[in-house]
């Protein structure tokens, strides 16, 4: 298989000290290789899309970056520190939001945010809670019971939790998965806004190619635990000789095939 990776020839336009550096990250569950030698990095203020079909290893990779799953091999370095040695210190400066998690449904919206605000030691918490609710346009839900929110409102509440501590690194696992196009568009705009206003670095997984085209600076295409390609959306289309990222996604998902474009490719690595 041929892989194209940022660290081996791809010229990263952000070229600064990486906020997140994942090196040869591998996770095996018994005989199943969920993540297989994945290497990538993210620079400050960059939004990196992690793409791939179900089972590609995206969520496992994110969970390893959070320290919820221990890698079989490889390393995760965040803010220049090894995650395995400085996990708590690192987690204070990052946050995450996943479509697979919820906040306790019995608590009111403000109660959930207060609890997590305290865990992340957010200064001036009441003001910050109002700010994030305003940002996600759910201020009117502040006193509602979280379990009574719609799926879209629940996702936005999760995002509020993830933004509470002004994370320097934000991991978003399919944040628009359950949202209608209008709310999904608003979420994309919030993601772009916090990157612009606070230079937040973001690792973003999605099945929605519109998300990726609109918010991501680069994408990492994964298939069966391996990285197939890293590049900008434009480079990805050029490399795969497809019209849209959706076509690339479908082709990779169905066959894992990458057809090299010999005229344009950079940093080809044989594996």
């Amino acid at each position: 298989m041929v892989a194209h990776q940022g660290g081996t020839g791809y010229e990263n336009p952000f070229m600064s000290e990486p906020i997140l550096q994942v090196t040869d990250l591998t996770k095996a569950f018994g005989d199943v290789m969920s993540v297989d030698g994945v290497t990538f990095d993210i620079q400050k203020g960059e939004i990196l899309g992690l793409l791939g079909a179900n089972g590609a290893g995206k969520t496992t990779a994110i969970n390893m970056v959070l320290g919820i799953i221990t890698p079989t091999k490889g390393s995760v370095t965040v803010f220049g520190k090894d995650l395995s040695h400085s996990r708590i210190e690192i987690l204070r400066r990052m946050n995450f939001c996943s479509t697979y998690t919820q906040l306790p449904g019995n608590l009111r919206v403000w109660q959930n945010l207060k609890v997590f605000g305290k865990l992340y030691r957010v200064p001036d918490l009441p003001k910050r809670i109002d700010e994030v609710l305003e940002m996600l346009e759910i201020s009117h839900l502040k006193n509602r019971v979280s379990g009574e929110l719609s799926a879209g409102e629940g996702t936005r509440l999760n995002l509020c939790k993830a933004l509470l501590n002004r994370p320097e690194l934000l991991l978003l696992d399919e944040p628009t998965a359950s949202l209608d196009p209008d709310i999904a568009d608003k979420v994309r705009k919030v993601v772009s806004r916090i990157r612009e206003e606070e230079s937040t670095t973001i690792l973003y997984t999605s099945h929605n190619m519109r998300d990726v085209e609109e918010v991501c600076d680069r994408v990492v295409f994964m298939h069966k635990g391996k990285v197939l390609f890293i590049g900008t959306a434009e480079e990805t289309l050029h490399h795969f000789e497809e019209e849209s990222l959706e076509d690339v996604f479908i082709r990779v998902a169905r066959s894992g095939e990458i057809k090299p474009n010999r005229g344009k490719q950079k940093g080809e690595v044989s594996k």
């Binding site: 987690l91 697979y100 919820q102």
Partner: peptide
């Protein structure tokens, strides 16, 4: 179990909680 039932487990273990 409260965290399991409310699907809040990952939020807690991904937070800076020892």
């Amino acid at each position: 179990l409260e965290d399991v039932w409310s699907r809040n487990l990952l939020n807690i273990f991904a937070a800076p909680v020892t």
